[in-house]
Amino acid sequence: MPWMLPTILKNFFGGPATRLYPVEVREPFEHARGQVSFNEDKCTLCGTCVRRCPAEAISMDKEKNELTFYPARCIVCEVCVDICPRKAIDLIYKWRSPFYAKPVEVYKPRGKASNKAEKEVAATHEPALNN
């Protein structure tokens, strides 16, 4: 097979094409869609991301004040990142490491409380400013 010869020679002397993963991990690309992460301080549990996620990877319980994220279902489509009104969801470039058990992340959003606190702080400051 004369046509294959250059490829064969290259394979002999070219070294491995693969990496020693997970010891050696490639740097993620700057805009790679690795995973999403939720910011408990900003989230107000408004439910927009829960309704819009095409993979049903997010659920919430208003009574318990909980937002549950199932990373194994998430396809990192970025929809939730785009539509969250509080910008509480961040896109992380790094890929998630492989897992044996499907992870479930439970968040306790404090966005509402901090929103209220912010408003209260603003309210207490206002008279001071007026003076």
């Binding site: 690309f29 805009h31 790679a32 869609r33 396809i75 990192v76 489509c77 970025e78």
Partner: peptide
């Protein structure tokens, strides 16, 4: 992956 962020399902 470099240009769209994903390998196969680019979204």
């Amino acid at each position: 992956e470099m240009t769209t962020g994903q390998r196969v399902i680019q979204s």
